[in-house]
Computed example of a mutant assay.
Amino acid sequence: MMKETIQTDGAKLSVYLQGPDWDGAPTAAIGDFSCKTPDSGLQALRAGIALIQKAGINRVVGPMSGDTWHSYRFVSESDGSAPFLMEPTNKSHDPDVFRSAGFATISKYFSARVPLAHAATSSPTATDAFEVVPWDGTNPEEFFRKVYELSVEAFSQNAFYKPISEPDFLAMYMPVVPMLKPELIFFARRPDGSLAGFLFGIPNYAEGSNPKAAILKTYASLERGAGRHLASRFHKSALKLGCDTAIHALIHDDNQSADRSVAEGATVFRRYSLMGLRLDG
């Protein structure tokens, strides 16, 4: 992924000139942002915007490290609880720096937590359309190849989607293999064996070696109802593993899974925002 880094005494950011499209228009992304003070951050941000304008690009999104496969979004509201594993973090003044440069929120997300004693009691209506089975824990590279293929198909219509190569995807996820628990990873398979969906969960190792929370990190489905069945199995399995809480991580406000999270009794504890700037007015 090509990027240009801007670094000053008090701030640093990366400019990705080939970011995802925004409403069908070519868009740059600004990510990897950090600053000691709002003034130093604004100075670096303006330098990044000038570089983008010079390249003839009129739209910018941020924070985003090139695409939505990598780190993106600011924490915009929080209950003050500690970050969970793989959650984006930032200083409280960072969103204000972007707003000072003319950025506005263009997409909103949240994370919520739910007691497993409650969430694990519900079961969706049985179906013959697919069967939910756990990953057997073998051949992790092949597992992530399957996840890649289904993700590309399931997420291709999402806002700010940008394709990623399979080798780049594997390079992102293979390092986390030692942390995986097959009991928190599931496939939904149709009667012919083809994949209808997957769910990738992981213990919240940010709590330590024996976490009490399990993170529902990502799931995707190609069949109606598959997501609900996958989430149900995840909740039940996490409870059996000794966890007491599930974290529904980084859900888009307008996603169907947002309504499902609320229906399952989850409580929002963090909100996030992706910001954008139109340089052509």
Results as ranks from 00 to 15, higher is better:
29 A>N: 00
217 K>F: 15
274 L>Q: 08
127 T>P: 14
70 H>T: 12
101 A>T: 06
64 M>R: 08
127 T>M: 07
90 N>Y: 09
132 V>T: 08
204 N>S: 13
99 R>P: 01
92 S>F: 02
159 A>Y: 10
44 A>V: 06
53 Q>Y: 10
173 Y>I: 04
219 Y>T: 11
119 A>I: 07
69 W>T: 08
72 Y>K: 01
84 F>C: 11
243 C>A: 14
110 F>P: 09
92 S>P: 05
25 A>M: 04
35 C>E: 05
265 G>Y: 08
230 L>E: 13
206 A>Y: 08
134 P>M: 00
256 Q>D: 15
279 L>V: 07
41 G>M: 02
164 I>V: 14
225 G>I: 12
102 G>I: 03
84 F>H: 05
281 G>T: 03
165 S>P: 04
83 P>T: 03
43 Q>P: 01
162 K>C: 09
164 I>A: 03
230 L>N: 11
61 V>G: 00
111 S>L: 04
129 A>S: 15
189 R>G: 07
169 F>R: 00
31 G>M: 01
82 A>L: 08
131 E>I: 08
249 A>V: 09
146 K>P: 00
187 F>N: 00
112 A>T: 13
44 A>P: 02
201 G>K: 01
241 L>C: 13
153 E>Y: 07
134 P>I: 02
20 P>W: 04
182 P>N: 07
108 K>E: 13
74 F>L: 03
103 F>I: 00
261 S>N: 12
266 A>L: 05
2 M>V: 06
157 Q>W: 07
261 S>D: 13
134 P>Q: 03
220 A>L: 05
134 P>K: 01
103 F>W: 04
275 M>F: 10
151 S>P: 08
155 F>H: 06
22 W>C: 01
65 S>W: 00
125 T>Q: 15
135 W>K: 01
239 L>A: 14
253 D>C: 13
148 Y>W: 03
62 G>A: 02
9 D>Y: 04
33 F>N: 00
120 A>N: 09
263 A>K: 15
17 L>T: 10
160 F>S: 01
189 R>V: 07
51 L>E: 07
130 F>R: 03
17 L>Y: 10
177 V>E: 09
251 I>M: 14
139 N>F: 08
254 D>A: 12
168 D>Q: 11
55 A>C: 06
219 Y>E: 11
130 F>H: 05
12 K>V: 11
133 V>D: 10
201 G>W: 08
121 T>M: 14
266 A>D: 10
203 P>H: 04
4 E>M: 10
25 A>W: 07
192 D>I: 06
84 F>P: 02
189 R>M: 09
12 K>I: 05
158 N>E: 07
137 G>F: 07
165 S>G: 10
32 D>Y: 10
194 S>T: 15
205 Y>N: 06
30 I>T: 06
271 R>C: 11
166 E>R: 04
164 I>H: 05
268 V>C: 12
2 M>L: 09
46 R>P: 06
122 S>K: 12
3 K>F: 15
44 A>Y: 04
240 K>S: 15
126 A>N: 14
222 L>F: 12
233 R>G: 06
187 F>W: 14
108 K>L: 04
92 S>C: 00
